[in-house]
Design a protein around this nucleic acid. Sequence first.
DNA 1: TCTGGGGTCCTAGGACCC
DNA 2: TCTGGGGTCCTAGGACCC
Length: 417
Amino acid sequence: MSNKWVGLLDCNNFFVSCERLFRPELEGKPVLVLSSNDGCVVARSQEVKDIGVPMGVPYFQIKDIIKNEGITAFSSHFALYRDVSRRVFSVMSEELGGIQQYSIDEAFFLLDCHPEEIASHLRKIIAKKVGIPVSIGLSQTRTRAKYANMLAKKAKGIKLLSEQEWSFLAPKIPLAQIWGVGGKMEIKYKNHNLLTAYDLMSADPQQVRTLFGLMGLRLRDELKGVPVSTGVKKSDTQHTILNSRSFKKPTEELAVLADAIAYHLRHAAASMRAKSLETRSIRVFIRPSRHSDFVLQGGSKEIVLTQYTRDTVELSRLAKRALEQVYRPRVPYKQAGVVLGNLRPVGVNQPDLFSLPKDKNSDRLMKVLDNINAGKEGKDLLTVGSRLKQSEWQAKSDNRSPAYTTKWSDILTVKSQ
DNA sequence: TCTGGGGTCCTAGGACCC
DNA sequence: TCTGGGGTCCTAGGACCC
Protein backbone atom coordinates (compact mmCIF):
# COMPACT_ATOMS: atom_id res chain seq x y z
CA MET A 1 0.00 0.00 0.00
CA SER A 2 2.14 2.86 -1.26
CA ASN A 3 -0.66 5.38 -1.68
CA LYS A 4 -1.05 7.52 1.34
CA TRP A 5 -4.27 9.28 0.56
CA VAL A 6 -7.65 8.26 -0.77
CA GLY A 7 -9.51 11.22 -2.22
CA LEU A 8 -13.17 11.71 -2.97
CA LEU A 9 -14.28 14.50 -5.26
CA ASP A 10 -17.97 15.35 -5.13
CA CYS A 11 -19.79 18.00 -7.15
CA ASN A 12 -21.76 20.42 -4.97
CA ASN A 13 -25.56 20.27 -5.42
CA PHE A 14 -24.75 18.71 -8.76
CA PHE A 15 -28.03 18.92 -10.67
CA VAL A 16 -28.62 22.45 -9.42
CA SER A 17 -25.11 23.46 -10.45
CA CYS A 18 -25.73 21.99 -13.92
CA GLU A 19 -28.91 24.04 -14.35
CA ARG A 20 -27.15 27.18 -13.12
CA LEU A 21 -24.38 26.77 -15.69
CA PHE A 22 -26.84 27.98 -18.31
CA ARG A 23 -28.86 30.27 -16.05
CA PRO A 24 -26.14 32.24 -14.24
CA GLU A 25 -28.71 34.71 -12.95
CA LEU A 26 -29.86 31.91 -10.60
CA GLU A 27 -26.56 32.01 -8.74
CA GLY A 28 -27.28 32.81 -5.10
CA LYS A 29 -31.00 32.20 -5.58
CA PRO A 30 -32.99 29.19 -4.30
CA VAL A 31 -33.09 26.44 -6.96
CA LEU A 32 -34.23 22.84 -6.81
CA VAL A 33 -34.48 19.89 -9.21
CA LEU A 34 -37.31 17.35 -9.23
CA SER A 35 -37.20 13.65 -10.00
CA SER A 36 -38.76 12.41 -13.20
CA ASN A 37 -42.53 12.61 -13.17
CA ASP A 38 -41.86 15.75 -11.14
CA GLY A 39 -42.36 13.37 -8.23
CA CYS A 40 -40.06 14.62 -5.51
CA VAL A 41 -37.06 16.82 -4.75
CA VAL A 42 -33.71 15.28 -5.72
CA ALA A 43 -31.37 18.27 -5.57
CA ARG A 44 -31.38 21.52 -3.62
CA SER A 45 -29.23 24.62 -3.69
CA GLN A 46 -27.83 25.84 -0.37
CA GLU A 47 -30.53 28.52 -0.31
CA VAL A 48 -33.25 25.85 -0.57
CA LYS A 49 -31.61 23.82 2.20
CA ASP A 50 -31.58 26.95 4.36
CA ILE A 51 -35.29 27.47 3.73
CA GLY A 52 -35.77 23.99 5.19
CA VAL A 53 -36.98 21.96 2.21
CA PRO A 54 -35.94 18.36 2.94
CA MET A 55 -34.38 15.99 0.42
CA GLY A 56 -36.83 13.60 -1.24
CA VAL A 57 -39.98 15.44 -0.23
CA PRO A 58 -42.91 15.07 -2.70
CA TYR A 59 -43.40 18.03 -5.01
CA PHE A 60 -47.10 18.41 -4.31
CA GLN A 61 -46.37 18.94 -0.63
CA ILE A 62 -44.15 21.96 -1.19
CA LYS A 63 -45.86 23.75 -4.07
CA ASP A 64 -46.83 26.62 -1.80
CA ILE A 65 -43.35 27.01 -0.37
CA ILE A 66 -41.91 27.08 -3.87
CA LYS A 67 -44.26 29.84 -4.81
CA ASN A 68 -43.96 31.88 -1.64
CA GLU A 69 -40.17 31.66 -1.41
CA GLY A 70 -39.59 32.30 -5.10
CA ILE A 71 -37.81 29.00 -5.64
CA THR A 72 -36.98 28.03 -9.22
CA ALA A 73 -37.90 24.37 -9.76
CA PHE A 74 -36.55 22.30 -12.66
CA SER A 75 -37.71 18.91 -13.90
CA SER A 76 -34.69 16.62 -14.02
CA HIS A 77 -32.75 16.58 -17.25
CA PHE A 78 -30.41 13.63 -17.23
CA ALA A 79 -28.94 14.08 -20.68
CA LEU A 80 -27.58 17.43 -19.50
CA TYR A 81 -26.27 16.09 -16.19
CA ARG A 82 -24.56 13.13 -17.83
CA ASP A 83 -22.87 15.43 -20.27
CA VAL A 84 -21.57 17.81 -17.59
CA SER A 85 -20.52 14.79 -15.51
CA ARG A 86 -18.46 13.48 -18.41
CA ARG A 87 -16.69 16.82 -18.65
CA VAL A 88 -15.85 16.94 -14.96
CA PHE A 89 -14.36 13.44 -14.98
CA SER A 90 -12.43 13.97 -18.15
CA VAL A 91 -10.71 17.01 -16.60
CA MET A 92 -10.07 14.92 -13.48
CA SER A 93 -8.58 12.09 -15.51
CA GLU A 94 -6.33 14.48 -17.43
CA GLU A 95 -4.99 15.81 -14.16
CA LEU A 96 -4.70 12.59 -12.15
CA GLY A 97 -4.54 9.67 -14.54
CA GLY A 98 -6.63 6.90 -13.00
CA ILE A 99 -9.83 7.72 -11.19
CA GLN A 100 -12.69 5.54 -10.03
CA GLN A 101 -16.04 7.03 -10.85
CA TYR A 102 -18.53 6.14 -8.16
CA SER A 103 -21.67 7.98 -9.24
CA ILE A 104 -22.78 10.67 -11.65
CA ASP A 105 -21.13 13.33 -9.48
CA GLU A 106 -18.44 11.56 -7.44
CA ALA A 107 -15.09 9.89 -8.09
CA PHE A 108 -12.34 8.41 -5.90
CA PHE A 109 -8.63 8.81 -6.58
CA LEU A 110 -5.27 8.06 -4.93
CA LEU A 111 -2.42 10.42 -4.04
CA ASP A 112 1.07 9.88 -2.63
CA CYS A 113 2.00 13.41 -1.73
CA HIS A 114 0.98 17.07 -1.81
CA PRO A 115 -2.69 16.22 -1.24
CA GLU A 116 -3.77 19.75 -0.43
CA GLU A 117 -1.99 21.40 -3.33
CA ILE A 118 -3.39 18.89 -5.80
CA ALA A 119 -6.91 19.11 -4.37
CA SER A 120 -6.85 22.88 -4.53
CA HIS A 121 -5.59 22.79 -8.12
CA LEU A 122 -8.36 20.33 -9.05
CA ARG A 123 -11.06 22.59 -7.68
CA LYS A 124 -9.73 25.56 -9.59
CA ILE A 125 -9.29 23.84 -12.91
CA ILE A 126 -12.73 22.20 -12.80
CA ALA A 127 -14.29 25.55 -11.96
CA LYS A 128 -12.44 27.09 -14.88
CA LYS A 129 -12.95 24.41 -17.53
CA VAL A 130 -16.42 23.15 -16.58
CA GLY A 131 -17.80 25.76 -14.22
CA ILE A 132 -18.95 23.36 -11.52
CA PRO A 133 -18.09 23.82 -7.80
CA VAL A 134 -16.70 20.68 -6.17
CA SER A 135 -15.66 19.49 -2.70
CA ILE A 136 -12.76 17.18 -1.95
CA GLY A 137 -12.22 14.95 1.06
CA LEU A 138 -8.96 13.08 1.70
CA SER A 139 -8.24 10.35 4.23
CA GLN A 140 -6.89 6.80 4.53
CA THR A 141 -9.84 4.74 3.24
CA ARG A 142 -12.83 5.43 1.04
CA THR A 143 -15.21 5.37 3.99
CA ARG A 144 -13.10 7.91 5.85
CA ALA A 145 -12.68 10.00 2.69
CA LYS A 146 -16.43 10.05 2.32
CA TYR A 147 -16.74 11.47 5.81
CA ALA A 148 -13.95 13.95 5.10
CA ASN A 149 -15.89 15.07 2.06
CA MET A 150 -18.88 15.83 4.24
CA LEU A 151 -16.65 18.01 6.40
CA ALA A 152 -15.20 19.65 3.27
CA LYS A 153 -18.66 20.84 2.28
CA LYS A 154 -18.93 22.70 5.56
CA ALA A 155 -15.40 24.05 5.32
CA LYS A 156 -13.81 25.75 2.34
CA GLY A 157 -14.21 22.85 -0.07
CA ILE A 158 -11.23 20.73 0.96
CA LYS A 159 -10.75 18.56 4.04
CA LEU A 160 -7.69 16.52 4.86
CA LEU A 161 -8.62 14.04 7.59
CA SER A 162 -5.48 12.70 9.26
CA GLU A 163 -5.15 9.51 11.29
CA GLN A 164 -4.86 11.59 14.47
CA GLU A 165 -7.91 13.69 13.76
CA TRP A 166 -9.93 10.60 12.86
CA SER A 167 -9.02 8.93 16.15
CA PHE A 168 -10.15 12.05 17.92
CA LEU A 169 -13.44 12.30 16.03
CA ALA A 170 -14.46 8.62 15.78
CA PRO A 171 -16.05 8.36 19.27
CA LYS A 172 -18.26 11.34 18.39
CA ILE A 173 -19.44 10.19 14.97
CA PRO A 174 -22.83 8.44 15.05
CA LEU A 175 -22.82 5.34 12.84
CA ALA A 176 -25.77 6.74 10.92
CA GLN A 177 -23.44 9.37 9.46
CA ILE A 178 -21.14 6.72 8.04
CA TRP A 179 -21.33 5.77 4.37
CA GLY A 180 -23.11 2.42 4.03
CA VAL A 181 -25.10 2.61 7.24
CA GLY A 182 -28.75 3.21 6.43
CA GLY A 183 -31.83 3.18 8.61
CA LYS A 184 -32.12 -0.58 8.96
CA MET A 185 -28.50 -1.21 9.85
CA GLU A 186 -28.38 1.72 12.23
CA ILE A 187 -31.12 0.10 14.29
CA LYS A 188 -29.38 -3.25 14.16
CA TYR A 189 -26.10 -1.75 15.36
CA LYS A 190 -27.92 0.18 18.05
CA ASN A 191 -29.58 -2.99 19.30
CA HIS A 192 -26.11 -4.32 20.02
CA ASN A 193 -25.02 -1.12 21.65
CA LEU A 194 -22.85 0.05 18.80
CA LEU A 195 -23.55 3.77 18.46
CA THR A 196 -20.47 5.46 17.10
CA ALA A 197 -17.77 4.79 14.51
CA TYR A 198 -15.41 4.07 17.39
CA ASP A 199 -17.79 1.47 18.85
CA LEU A 200 -17.77 -0.56 15.66
CA MET A 201 -14.01 -0.17 15.19
CA SER A 202 -13.33 -1.61 18.61
CA ALA A 203 -15.90 -4.41 18.48
CA ASP A 204 -14.83 -8.03 18.25
CA PRO A 205 -14.44 -8.95 14.55
CA GLN A 206 -15.78 -12.48 15.00
CA GLN A 207 -18.94 -11.12 16.58
CA VAL A 208 -19.29 -8.43 13.96
CA ARG A 209 -19.08 -11.11 11.27
CA THR A 210 -21.82 -13.26 12.76
CA LEU A 211 -24.11 -10.39 13.70
CA PHE A 212 -23.72 -8.07 10.74
CA GLY A 213 -22.26 -10.22 7.98
CA LEU A 214 -19.55 -9.41 5.48
CA MET A 215 -20.70 -5.82 5.13
CA GLY A 216 -20.25 -5.23 8.85
CA LEU A 217 -16.78 -6.69 8.84
CA ARG A 218 -15.70 -4.62 5.87
CA LEU A 219 -17.12 -1.47 7.32
CA ARG A 220 -15.18 -2.14 10.52
CA ASP A 221 -11.95 -2.49 8.54
CA GLU A 222 -12.55 0.67 6.54
CA LEU A 223 -13.23 2.64 9.71
CA LYS A 224 -10.05 1.26 11.27
CA GLY A 225 -8.08 2.50 8.28
CA VAL A 226 -7.70 -0.79 6.42
CA PRO A 227 -8.92 -0.34 2.82
CA VAL A 228 -11.13 -3.24 1.76
CA SER A 229 -11.25 -2.98 -1.99
CA THR A 230 -7.59 -3.02 -2.93
CA GLY A 231 -7.05 0.46 -4.21
CA VAL A 232 -8.92 2.48 -6.76
CA LYS A 233 -7.96 0.86 -10.04
CA LYS A 234 -10.56 -1.32 -11.75
CA SER A 235 -11.63 -1.14 -15.37
CA ASP A 236 -14.86 -2.72 -14.23
CA THR A 237 -17.53 -2.97 -16.85
CA GLN A 238 -21.05 -2.33 -15.75
CA HIS A 239 -22.95 -5.41 -14.52
CA THR A 240 -26.55 -4.41 -15.15
CA ILE A 241 -28.60 -1.97 -17.21
CA LEU A 242 -31.95 -0.99 -15.76
CA ASN A 243 -34.82 0.85 -17.38
CA SER A 244 -38.00 1.58 -15.47
CA ARG A 245 -40.61 4.20 -14.78
CA SER A 246 -43.57 4.85 -12.51
CA PHE A 247 -46.96 5.19 -14.14
CA LYS A 248 -49.06 8.28 -14.16
CA LYS A 249 -51.78 6.24 -12.49
CA PRO A 250 -51.93 2.59 -11.39
CA THR A 251 -53.02 -0.10 -13.83
CA GLU A 252 -54.28 -3.67 -13.44
CA GLU A 253 -54.13 -4.44 -17.14
CA LEU A 254 -51.63 -6.83 -18.63
CA ALA A 255 -51.75 -5.04 -21.99
CA VAL A 256 -50.65 -1.76 -20.45
CA LEU A 257 -47.86 -3.47 -18.53
CA ALA A 258 -46.76 -5.26 -21.68
CA ASP A 259 -46.54 -1.93 -23.46
CA ALA A 260 -44.41 -0.43 -20.70
CA ILE A 261 -42.16 -3.49 -20.49
CA ALA A 262 -41.67 -3.52 -24.26
CA TYR A 263 -40.76 0.17 -24.13
CA HIS A 264 -38.23 -0.32 -21.33
CA LEU A 265 -36.74 -3.30 -23.06
CA ARG A 266 -36.17 -1.35 -26.28
CA HIS A 267 -34.42 1.41 -24.39
CA ALA A 268 -32.34 -0.89 -22.20
CA ALA A 269 -31.24 -2.92 -25.23
CA ALA A 270 -30.37 0.19 -27.23
CA SER A 271 -28.38 1.57 -24.29
CA MET A 272 -26.58 -1.76 -24.00
CA ARG A 273 -25.62 -1.72 -27.67
CA ALA A 274 -24.48 1.89 -27.39
CA LYS A 275 -22.07 0.74 -24.69
CA SER A 276 -20.92 -2.23 -26.80
CA LEU A 277 -22.17 -4.73 -24.24
CA GLU A 278 -24.17 -7.91 -24.55
CA THR A 279 -26.36 -9.69 -22.01
CA ARG A 280 -27.07 -13.16 -20.77
CA SER A 281 -29.98 -12.51 -18.45
CA ILE A 282 -33.13 -10.46 -18.44
CA ARG A 283 -35.28 -9.61 -15.46
CA VAL A 284 -38.74 -8.08 -15.57
CA PHE A 285 -40.35 -6.50 -12.51
CA ILE A 286 -43.72 -4.92 -11.78
CA ARG A 287 -44.69 -3.22 -8.53
CA PRO A 288 -47.64 -1.51 -6.89
CA SER A 289 -47.13 1.83 -5.19
CA ARG A 290 -44.77 1.78 -2.22
CA HIS A 291 -47.40 3.75 -0.36
CA SER A 292 -50.40 1.53 -0.90
CA ASP A 293 -51.80 -1.56 0.80
CA PHE A 294 -50.47 -3.64 -2.06
CA VAL A 295 -46.77 -2.99 -1.36
CA LEU A 296 -45.97 -6.67 -1.08
CA GLN A 297 -47.79 -7.74 -4.23
CA GLY A 298 -44.98 -6.91 -6.63
CA GLY A 299 -42.64 -9.42 -8.14
CA SER A 300 -39.87 -10.09 -10.59
CA LYS A 301 -38.85 -12.85 -12.92
CA GLU A 302 -35.43 -13.48 -14.37
CA ILE A 303 -34.68 -15.50 -17.47
CA VAL A 304 -31.12 -16.66 -18.01
CA LEU A 305 -30.12 -17.20 -21.62
CA THR A 306 -27.87 -19.96 -22.89
CA GLN A 307 -26.04 -17.51 -25.10
CA TYR A 308 -25.14 -13.81 -24.95
CA THR A 309 -27.28 -11.55 -27.09
CA ARG A 310 -27.84 -7.95 -28.15
CA ASP A 311 -31.00 -8.63 -30.07
CA THR A 312 -34.06 -6.58 -29.17
CA VAL A 313 -36.39 -9.01 -30.94
CA GLU A 314 -35.14 -12.01 -28.99
CA LEU A 315 -35.12 -10.12 -25.70
CA SER A 316 -38.62 -8.78 -26.30
CA ARG A 317 -40.00 -12.27 -26.59
CA LEU A 318 -38.36 -13.30 -23.31
CA ALA A 319 -39.51 -10.13 -21.55
CA LYS A 320 -43.09 -10.83 -22.53
CA ARG A 321 -42.84 -14.37 -21.23
CA ALA A 322 -41.33 -13.20 -17.94
CA LEU A 323 -44.04 -10.58 -17.53
CA GLU A 324 -46.79 -13.15 -17.98
CA GLN A 325 -45.22 -15.17 -15.18
CA VAL A 326 -45.11 -12.38 -12.60
CA TYR A 327 -48.37 -10.70 -13.49
CA ARG A 328 -51.27 -11.13 -11.06
CA PRO A 329 -54.78 -9.88 -11.83
CA ARG A 330 -56.41 -7.23 -9.65
CA VAL A 331 -53.18 -5.70 -8.42
CA PRO A 332 -52.87 -1.95 -9.05
CA TYR A 333 -49.34 -1.79 -10.49
CA LYS A 334 -47.60 1.56 -10.36
CA GLN A 335 -44.20 0.74 -11.83
CA ALA A 336 -42.62 -1.58 -14.37
CA GLY A 337 -39.02 -2.17 -15.36
CA VAL A 338 -36.48 -4.30 -17.14
CA VAL A 339 -32.96 -5.25 -16.01
CA LEU A 340 -30.37 -6.66 -18.37
CA GLY A 341 -27.74 -8.53 -16.38
CA ASN A 342 -24.58 -10.59 -16.75
CA LEU A 343 -23.25 -7.98 -19.13
CA ARG A 344 -19.95 -8.32 -20.91
CA PRO A 345 -18.18 -6.35 -23.62
CA VAL A 346 -18.95 -7.48 -27.15
CA GLY A 347 -16.16 -9.47 -28.72
CA VAL A 348 -15.10 -11.46 -25.67
CA ASN A 349 -16.09 -14.54 -27.56
CA GLN A 350 -16.17 -17.82 -25.74
CA PRO A 351 -18.65 -19.79 -27.78
CA ASP A 352 -20.73 -22.15 -25.72
CA LEU A 353 -20.34 -25.76 -26.71
CA PHE A 354 -24.05 -26.41 -26.55
CA SER A 355 -25.48 -23.21 -27.98
CA LEU A 356 -26.70 -22.66 -31.49
CA PRO A 357 -24.75 -20.60 -33.99
CA LYS A 358 -25.58 -16.91 -33.93
CA ASP A 359 -27.93 -15.30 -36.37
CA LYS A 360 -25.66 -13.08 -38.45
CA ASN A 361 -28.53 -10.90 -39.58
CA SER A 362 -29.46 -9.91 -36.06
CA ASP A 363 -26.50 -7.57 -35.58
CA ARG A 364 -27.15 -5.86 -38.88
CA LEU A 365 -30.83 -5.41 -38.12
CA MET A 366 -30.06 -3.91 -34.71
CA LYS A 367 -27.58 -1.50 -36.26
CA VAL A 368 -30.21 -0.24 -38.67
CA LEU A 369 -32.70 0.08 -35.80
CA ASP A 370 -30.25 2.06 -33.66
CA ASN A 371 -29.26 4.35 -36.50
CA ILE A 372 -32.83 5.24 -37.30
CA ASN A 373 -33.61 5.96 -33.65
CA ALA A 374 -30.35 7.84 -33.06
CA GLY A 375 -30.69 11.50 -32.22
CA LYS A 376 -34.40 11.23 -31.68
CA GLU A 377 -34.27 11.19 -27.92
CA GLY A 378 -37.54 9.90 -26.55
CA LYS A 379 -39.13 9.68 -29.97
CA ASP A 380 -38.85 5.93 -30.33
CA LEU A 381 -39.96 5.96 -33.96
CA LEU A 382 -39.12 2.45 -35.06
CA THR A 383 -40.09 -0.09 -32.45
CA VAL A 384 -40.21 -3.74 -31.67
CA GLY A 385 -42.77 -5.34 -29.42
CA SER A 386 -46.18 -4.21 -28.25
CA ARG A 387 -47.18 -0.60 -28.67
CA LEU A 388 -50.47 0.82 -27.54
CA LYS A 389 -52.09 3.65 -29.45
CA GLN A 390 -52.11 5.86 -26.43
CA SER A 391 -49.38 5.23 -23.87
CA GLU A 392 -51.52 5.72 -20.83
CA TRP A 393 -48.76 4.86 -18.39
CA GLN A 394 -46.36 7.60 -19.44
CA ALA A 395 -46.02 10.86 -17.57
CA LYS A 396 -44.51 14.19 -18.45
CA SER A 397 -41.96 16.66 -17.17
CA ASP A 398 -43.29 20.19 -17.02
CA ASN A 399 -40.29 22.30 -16.10
CA ARG A 400 -37.46 20.70 -18.02
CA SER A 401 -34.62 22.94 -19.09
CA PRO A 402 -33.58 22.98 -22.76
CA ALA A 403 -30.97 20.43 -23.91
CA TYR A 404 -28.21 23.04 -23.98
CA THR A 405 -25.39 20.60 -24.65
CA THR A 406 -26.98 17.61 -26.34
CA LYS A 407 -29.42 19.02 -28.86
CA TRP A 408 -28.42 21.38 -31.64
CA SER A 409 -31.69 23.26 -31.54
CA ASP A 410 -31.25 24.10 -27.85
CA ILE A 411 -27.71 25.46 -27.92
CA LEU A 412 -27.49 28.93 -26.46
CA THR A 413 -26.94 31.81 -28.83
CA VAL A 414 -24.49 34.42 -27.64
CA LYS A 415 -25.17 37.95 -28.77
CA SER A 416 -22.74 40.83 -28.54
CA GLN A 417 -24.24 43.96 -27.08
C1' DT B 1 -55.12 13.66 -8.07
C1' DC B 2 -49.91 13.85 -7.03
C1' DT B 3 -44.07 10.03 -3.28
C1' DG B 4 -37.69 8.92 -8.99
C1' DG B 5 -34.55 6.10 -11.59
C1' DG B 6 -30.17 3.63 -12.05
C1' DG B 7 -26.84 1.12 -9.91
C1' DT B 8 -23.92 -2.24 -6.42
C1' DC B 9 -23.37 -6.06 -3.36
C1' DC B 10 -25.05 -9.53 -0.15
C1' DT B 11 -28.01 -13.28 1.67
C1' DA B 12 -31.94 -16.47 2.65
C1' DG B 13 -33.90 -20.27 1.02
C1' DG B 14 -35.23 -23.68 -2.54
C1' DA B 15 -33.66 -27.22 -5.87
C1' DC B 16 -30.68 -30.61 -6.64
C1' DC B 17 -27.00 -33.88 -5.74
C1' DC B 18 -24.41 -37.47 -3.26
C1' DT C 1 -44.45 -43.58 13.47
C1' DC C 2 -41.03 -41.43 11.35
C1' DT C 3 -38.61 -38.24 8.45
C1' DG C 4 -29.76 -37.51 7.20
C1' DG C 5 -26.71 -34.04 6.41
C1' DG C 6 -23.84 -31.39 3.86
C1' DG C 7 -22.48 -29.15 -0.33
C1' DT C 8 -23.36 -26.18 -4.51
C1' DC C 9 -25.93 -23.40 -7.54
C1' DC C 10 -29.55 -20.28 -8.57
C1' DT C 11 -33.15 -16.86 -7.81
C1' DA C 12 -35.63 -13.27 -5.63
C1' DG C 13 -35.40 -9.82 -2.66
C1' DG C 14 -33.18 -6.60 0.70
C1' DA C 15 -30.18 -2.80 2.00
C1' DC C 16 -27.74 0.78 0.59
C1' DC C 17 -25.96 4.50 -2.40
C1' DC C 18 -26.49 8.86 -5.40
